[in-house]
Computed example of a mutant assay.
Amino acid sequence: MVKFGVLVLLSAIAIGQGETTIESQCQVCQEENNVYCESESTFLRMRGAMKLGPLSCEADEVCSNSGNLCKKKTEITNEVLNVCGANCQSCSADRKYTCVSRNQAALCLNGQASSTIIIDCGEDEVCVDDDDGKAFLCVPSCVADYQKLSVPCSSAAFTTPTPAPPTTPSGDNQKSICQAAAVNKKTLYFFTYADSSCRTYVYCERSSSTSTDFTTTLSGSCSSPNPYFNTVSGKCQASVPDNCESEAPST
């Protein structure tokens, strides 16, 4: 990881003090919907101490703080947030830098936050992203608090986001997969395999344990070094799970 000295640009701060905004909670479990947004389009569902996922929004949707967590970008407002894409880890347009954690910034390369060119802020400093991303600001936390500056990232350290899978079952296909897998299942929610590879999976949720109408269906996939999904543990793993052959669809 390449690290640069921190450039503190206190004189460049020109953000008003009278206005506050809702702080994004990228890579933090949100109390509003018990979801951990891992990247702009991938997330984990929190069930107590258990993390279910990673799961993926549809191609044109982002992980939000809403109860209906996957939202189209046109539905994003000042209250319904694009949690990991508003300013935290955002390299949209012609941005050069973005904050990637509470006290780190990264260089934007080809529209993505670099996972190797990371700028560490100093001790007791926080990263404040400017509006156009032409520069980053590392300022003392007391200055950020006093001037009510928006700190876009809440996570303590940068974790390279897991990219969304290149292809996922459509919404209708996800429901069909859930309905087929629901035979002999009596739980409100469960994971099932989307295909015979046991790498792509679907999360299925319904309003009652006997309903065949699945109100929430989400898909995801695993990649190296843990390319296989275990529907029992709800986690990716290195080896083929024991139930892969018996539970995965034949096609």
Score class of each variant (00 low, 15 high):
R199T: 07
V83N: 10
S219W: 10
T168L: 15
S92M: 14
V183R: 06
C198F: 04
L188H: 09
S250L: 13
K96G: 09
S155M: 15
A105P: 01
Y189N: 15
Q89R: 15
L137V: 07
Y228P: 08
R45T: 14
A113D: 03
Y228V: 00
A105H: 00
V2G: 11
S114M: 03
V139L: 02
L107V: 11
Q112S: 13
G5M: 08
Q27K: 13
R199C: 07
S155P: 03
Q25G: 09
I15H: 07
T216A: 13
T74P: 10
A182Y: 01
L10M: 05
T212M: 14
A135H: 11
T251D: 15
D242L: 12
D172F: 12
A164D: 04
T251Q: 14
P161C: 04
N110K: 11
A105K: 03
E245D: 14
T98Y: 05
S66E: 14
T251P: 10
F136T: 00
E79M: 11
F229A: 02
K134W: 14
K73N: 13
A181L: 01
V28M: 12
C70N: 06
F136R: 00
V240W: 08
A144L: 00
K96R: 10
N68E: 15
N33E: 04
Q30L: 09
S115H: 08
K235Q: 12
A156N: 13
C244I: 01
S11M: 09
G133R: 03
V126L: 02
C57T: 03
F43N: 07
V128A: 04
P241D: 00
D124M: 06
M46Q: 15
S208A: 06
V232E: 06
L137W: 10
R95E: 03
A248K: 06
F4K: 09
C222L: 02
Y146N: 10
F191Y: 02
N34G: 13
V35F: 08
K175L: 06
C63A: 07
S11E: 11
S250D: 13
C63I: 09
V240E: 09
Q112D: 11
Y97E: 00
P225C: 03
E61W: 08
S207M: 14
T42H: 05
P169G: 00
R47P: 09
A106Q: 02
N230P: 03
T42F: 01
E19Q: 10
Y201Q: 05
E125G: 02
D131K: 14
T217R: 04
G67Q: 15
R206F: 05
T251R: 13
N33R: 05
T74E: 15
S250F: 12
F190K: 02
N78H: 11
L10Q: 04
F158S: 04
K72Q: 12
L44S: 15
K186M: 04
S219V: 08
M1S: 12
D94S: 15
